[in-house]
C-alpha cells in the first residue's frame, strides 16, 4: 500500500494512494464543506462546495473526487474559495423554496448549516419562488420538492445501497427534479422497498418521515454509513 505525502493548508498530511483529498483532509481533522458527498456511496462532484486550490493548477478541484498525489499542495479555505462557497449556498437558497422557519429540518439541515458556516446572513441573488409540489402518498415518508437541492444522494443510496433504483433525476437544468419510477406518486412506486435510506441521506427537509412537524426531522447519517460498510465490506 503506497502512501503519499501532501500538504493541506500548510500541514503535512499522509494518505493512502487511493484516497481522495477529502478523505485525507478529514483524517487530518481539516474540515472541507460538502453537500452532495455522502459517505458510503459514489461521488458525483456536483455541488462544488469542496473545491480546493491545488498548487500548480489553475483549475479548482473538487476534493471529493480528486485523488491524493505525492507532494500535492492544497489550500482548502482561501478567501476566494469561501466567497465561491457562499455564492453556491446563496444559489441554492434562491433556487428552491427554503423557508427555514417552517421547515421540518429546521435546526437539522445541512443547507442551513452551510449557510451559517459561510456567513450567509442574506441572499443577494434573486429568489425564484418555483411552484413545486409535496408528495405525501407514501405511507411512511414524504417528499417536498420545494426543499430539494438536487444533490442526488437519495438517487445514489437507492441505487447503490438498496439496489432498486426507485429514484432518478428527470428534466434538465433548472427544470431538474427527482422522481420515483415514472414520475409517479411515491406511494404507487412498485420498486420502492420503503427502506428509508433516502430519508436518512437527504441533507435538507426534502425527504422526511411522515408526520414530521416543523424542526422535528432528524436525519441519521450514521445509519447510511453503517449499512454501506455492512453491504460493501461485510463488516457490522
Amino acid at each position: 500500500m503506497a502512501v503519499k505525502t501532501l500538504t493541506i493548508d500548510d500541514r503535512l498530511v499522509s494518505a493512502r494512494e487511493e484516497e481522495t483529498v477529502l478523505d485525507a483532509a478529514r483524517e487530518a481533522g481539516i474540515h472541507i464543506p460538502t453537500l452532495c458527498y455522502l459517505e458510503g456511496v459514489s461521488e458525483v462532484g456536483a455541488c462544488r462546495l469542496c473545491l480546493v486550490e491545488v498548487a500548480g493548477s489553475s483549475k479548482l478541484q473538487p476534493a471529493c473526487v480528486t485523488k491524493v498525489a505525492e507532494g500535492m499542495e492544497i489550500q482548502t479555505n482561501t478567501d476566494r474559495l469561501q466567497n465561491y462557497r457562499r455564492i453556491i449556498v446563496e444559489m441554492l437558497f434562491a433556487e428552491g423554496n427554503h423557508v427555514c422557519s417552517v421547515c421540518v429540518a429546521n435546526g437539522n439541515c445541512e443547507l442551513q448549516d452551510l449557510a451559517i458556516e459561510m456567513g450567509m446572513d442574506h441572499v443577494r441573488l434573486e429568489y425564484q419562488f418555483p411552484d413545486r409540489q409535496v408528495d405525501l402518498s407514501h405511507d411512511r415518508f414524504g417528499m417536498d420538492h420545494n426543499r430539494c437541492v438536487l444533490c442526488t444522494r437519495c438517487v445514489r443510496v437507492c441505487d447503490e445501497l438498496e439496489g432498486v433504483h426507485t429514484w432518478d433525476m428527470a428534466g434538465r437544468g433548472s427544470q431538474s427534479h427527482v422522481i420515483t419510477d415514472l414520475n409517479q406518486p411515491w406511494g404507487t412506486s412498485q420498486t420502492c422497498t420503503s427502506c428509508g435510506k433516502c430519508v436518512e441521506a437527504c441533507p435538507t427537509g426534502a425527504i422526511f418521515h411522515q408526520g414530521s412537524s416543523v424542526g422535528e426531522m432528524v436525519h441519521d447519517r450514521a445509519r447510511i454509513e453503517f449499512i454501506a460498510t455492512a453491504r460493501q465490506k461485510q463488516q457490522w
Binding site: S101, V102, V104, V134, G142, D144, G211, S213, V214, G215
Partner: peptide, 14 residues
C-alpha cells in the same frame, strides 16, 4: 394549500 397537515401548526404560528 398543498402543505402537509403536520407542518400547519408551525406555519400558522407565523
Amino acid at each position: 394549500e398543498g402543505r402537509p397537515l403536520w407542518e400547519m401548526p408551525g406555519i400558522t404560528a407565523r
